[in-house]
Amino acid sequence: MTIHKAPAEDTKPAYNYAYLDEQTKRMIRRALLKAVAVPGYQVPFGSREMPLARGWGTGGIQVTAAIIGPADTLKVIDQGADDTTNAVSIRKFFERTADARTSEVTDEATIIQTRHRIPEAPLKSGQIMVYQVPTPEPLRRLEPREAETRKMHAWAEYGLMQVKLYEDIARYGEITKTYDYPVMVNGRYVMAPSPIPKFDNPKMHMSPALQLFGAGREKRIYALPPYTSVRSLDFEDHPFRIQSWTEPCGLCGAADSYLDEVVIDDRGGRMFVCSDSHYCETRRAEGHRGTMLGDAALSGLVEETTP
């Protein structure tokens, strides 16, 4: 029989700053520097086990853990929102392990870890975007063998990708890829921008912020230095287009942001709201009113707050 001895009262589990050990951080840092030197190229790295399942942002967390320091302010978003499960738990993780200052304000953050969106507010020089990437290889659906996709990148053989986009046009009349839309980086590497909507692709081009991509399960890191050319693949007669909506945000009235469609009843009723929760809140605080915004104070549901 094994007797498990309970740890003494004063024994607390202790971790290194930002969870990862220093050798792991060095390895990730070396990968990051090479990733920045070859924009869009996927650098293999020794992804570690993290205290959450792969597919929940372990790549992004490892990148953030390798770069974060006491001077940083961290913002974490999931599908544009600061208050969804993944965002909240990752923010808490860094509050606990790295004593990180966190913020929901895009403008205040020095590191923005994101899943599936780029904030609507323009990014600034000095900010670092960290993307959580599920599938870093844009060619994987077309060629399952790593040995082959590696050669395709080595020799810039991207004909297969153009054929795939062409087949979409031949079959449906337009390119049907709406997220993770492939881009050409610095005129050399085809890169998966992670599952951001194609609406966000133009924000990557010549962005003043540094953009880092971490794929934990697939063990790849890649990067876009600031002011790097990022071109969404298209054809001369079928130029790249972003999504558009027929109505503005139901809460803040924004017509220039990426909108989520929300079903509100079982009779086909729906509304469109900004996916970037901070952007929507900022606009409402500025006095913008959408058509669906219920005035809770008027109906006596909440107490009115004095500004």
Binding site: Y17, K25, R29, L33, I67, I68, G69
Partner: peptide, 12 residues
């Protein structure tokens, strides 16, 4: 820990 982090950010 902190000195290598600061130096890495300068390198990055």
């Amino acid at each position: 820990v902190f000195q290598s982090q600061a130096a890495f950010r300068a390198l990055l």
